[in-house]
């Protein structure tokens, strides 16, 4: 990723001038109040136990939509789903039908980030794959590249309603969005909304935590139980693991 600011593109002189202007201000920035920072030593990951996920439960979907103001336009092929339940039927009828949630896999080698021309899609220090919606130009190449269909384009204008969560922005049309692992909640020490809902209302199928912390529940479980990821053959190293697939 190479980044030039606009002034560098339109003329370096402006940057110099801005630097001179801003210099006195920088010292003022030194004493912030309450401050949180993503830690490079963390690797957020999710483990979903399919045996505990029942077909008729949709606690995670509802919680996600509510928390993140994910818009529904009433057009099935344009509605946005950060997380959805996928029903699997064995073609040979040997295994029972299962239903499991699929969301952005927050890959270690995310193809969406590789193809993004502006770096709007990026990997945060703690391994979360995000879209900087201020920088997205809406080219949709990431949607072409993602093998999990995790991304959606905002096809229509969205509006804030009284039920909207005021802590999360609504959407600007023409940009691409997807699951953020509820990054705004993580930074405030909370679990993602889907995980919280699954463990309170749902069947307790979702486990979320830091894979890099050997004492975390998820690190222990990933070490001890057999789990797998979707399309491991692509070599993307997803961080959403499934148990009992």
């Amino acid at each position: 990723m190479t980044t030039l600011d606009r002034r560098a593109v339109l003329g370096l002189g402006g940057t110099l001038a801005a630097g001179v202007l801003l210099a006195p201000g920088v010292s003022l920035l030194a004493a912030p109040g309450e401050r949180t920072e993503a830690s490079a030593s963390r690797r957020w990951a999710m483990l979903i136990d399919i045996n505990r996920c029942t077909p008729d439960c949709s606690a995670c979907l509802t919680a996600c939509r509510k928390e993140n103001n994910v818009p529904l336009f009433g057009e099935p092929d344009r509605d946005i789903h950060w997380i959805r339940k996928v029903e699997l039927r064995d073609k040979d009828q040997r295994r029972p039908t299962v239903s499991l949630p699929v969301l952005c896999n927050h890959c270690e080698h995310p193809p969406c980030v590789h193809v993004c021309p502006t770096g709007a899609s990026f990997v945060r220090k703690d391994g979360i794959v995000l879209v900087d919606e201020h920088r997205c130009i809406g080219c949709r190449y990431c949607m072409i590249a993602c093998p999990y269909k995790a991304r959606s384009l905002v096809y229509h204008e969205t509006r804030r309603s009284p039920e909207s969560n005021p802590n999360v922005p609504i959407r600007s049309k023409g940009v691409v969005e997807k699951c953020t692992f509820c990054v705004h909640r993580l930074d405030n020490g909370l679990q993602p909304a889907c995980v919280e809902a699954c463990n309170s209302v749902g069947g307790g199928a979702m486990l979320f935590g830091d894979l890099n912390d050997p004492h975390s529940e998820i690190a222990k479980r990933v070490r001890t139980v057999t789990s797998q990821t979707i399309r491991a053959d692509l070599g993307l190293k997803p961080r959403v693991h499934y148990q009992g697939l």
């Binding site: 990723m1 190479t2 980044t3 030039l4 600011d5 606009r6 560098a8 593109v9 980030v113 590789h114 193809v115 993004c116 021309p117 502006t118 770096g119 709007a120 920088r135 997205c136 130009i137 809406g138 080219c139 949709r140 190449y141 384009l153 905002v154 600007s172 049309k173 023409g174 940009v175 691409v176």
Partner: peptide, 25 residues
């Protein structure tokens, strides 16, 4: 046809050289 053609300048401000699109520019 971009979703946000008004942000085209961003392509020149931030470049991801792993993207085929940046190469194509």
């Amino acid at each position: 046809d971009l979703g946000r053609p008004d942000r085209l300048l961003l392509v020149m401000m931030h470049m991801n050289f792993r993207s085929m699109f940046t190469w194509n520019v």
